[in-house]
Amino acid sequence: MHANHSQGSTTDPIVRFEKVTKAFGELTVLRELNFEVGPQEKITIVGPSGSGKTTILRVLMTLEEPNDGVIYVDGEPLWHEEKNGKLVKASEKHLRKVRGKIGMVFQHFNLFPHMTALRNVTEAPVHVLKMPKGDAEERAKMLLDQVGLGDKMEHYPAQLSGGQKQRVAIARALAMRPKVMLFDEVTSALDPELVGEVLNVIRELAEEGDMAMLLVTHEMGFAREVSDRVVFFDKGQVVEQGPPADIFDNPQSERTKAFFSAVLRH
């Protein structure tokens, strides 16, 4: 078990992976992974492509089912439930109950094209959380203001730039009040000049400190700024993890050093 380097928190982890294995056919992407996230911790996962870092997020967001192991979210198992003291496969009801604590922002935004920005943000709170429409709209307006898109509420995704779409996507995920937010390479599909506006929003969220955040990104400078812990992930395993300064300035493992030198070369 890796030591938890998060700042100051001694409470139970909000996410815990216990010997989680995930394979796609012949290819094993996660090998008996043990991993923890503190309740307000900001973690960035870096590593070569194909290392499995996105899979960690996807398995947590229930987009992929693990082959083995248990994932705990806020103390409860995600893919399993406890019946008579034993762990059995979770029912749909249980899965949805626990899943509600996780939110995700995707590389390709995945906004609903047939809805305005406002409706994209209110749709799930109204229909999933059963929030009254008025309340949902008020909150949505506040969130869209927060990400700097207060004037674009009635616009459709097709009318927005990539950076604007991604900010709407962030507002949409926030509207569900998750305890853990996942960011899957959220700036990789953006034109370079639009990356900054999205990173600014994420930086603000990190500074507010409310929820745990798990980012997979190639933006190393940003990762260093924002993270409590950086995890270097390769071939399905955690190679090294620690505070940004440790990992970026003083990597211990050969593989970590090799990765960073390759990255820095351009």
Binding site: M61, T62, L63, R96, R99, G100, I102, G103, M104, F106, H108, F109, N110, L111, F112, E123, A124, H127, V128, A169, R172, A173, M176
Partner: peptide, 15 residues
């Protein structure tokens, strides 16, 4: 991606 976004927002399959 639409399906994945719906899952991420915890929507039921029917919804």
């Amino acid at each position: 991606g639409q399906i994945e976004a719906s899952v991420a927002l915890n929507m039921s399959p029917g919804l």
